[in-house]
Amino acid sequence: NAIRLAGDMSHMASFFVLLFKINKSKSVAGISLKTQELYVLVFCTRYVDIFWNHLSLYNSLMKVIFIALSVMIVYVMRRGVPQRSTYNPELDSFPHHWLVLPCVLLGVAINQDPTSPFEMAWAFSIYLEAVAIMPQLHMVQKHGEAENLTSHYIFLLGLYRVFYLVNWVYRYMTEDGYWQAIVWVSGAVQAVLYLDFFYNYVKSKQKD
């Protein structure tokens, strides 16, 4: 449906905005490497089914694109010259292990098929995605204010989540028996994390 597509497009746009920013400004200052690495982990654990679930060409293609773009971003941040010298590890100080560990435990404990390692990995990726933006938000707070393109990037990620939430409501009403507790609860948590950012983003845009 169109709402879901809008979500995917803003998600994809967020990658391109970030790649544009780090290529154009030659700097990754203010970007959390931890968040970007968590996204690589999210996509790699969620999309292992790319090898056997062929629901549509669109889905398979988007999975490849999401993995490739997230790996590319981490690559430029770690290896790019001069980008790698502009990274601020002292500001990227969020204790990310405390995000990953509970998500692993949750993924093992709460999933759609307790006998399947894939379902555990999949549930883990859903839980981790919900909180993966936290190191980035933490960095924005420590920095004081995010650069324009960085804030557009975060905004697009939050927007993607909002579109997906609306899409779930739509699907629940139009598709018989459509019901996804794990995804909905995690998605709602994820959206809530953006509230404070959204508020400041809109406020600063009004000021400009």
């Binding site: 998600h11 089914d49 629901l55 889905n59 988007m62 999401f66 098929d113 999949w122 899409n167 996804q180």
Partner: peptide
């Protein structure tokens, strides 16, 4: 719907 069929989102 089974678990695999439900995974039609990204």
């Amino acid at each position: 719907k089974n678990a695999a069929e439900k995974k039609d989102e990204l």
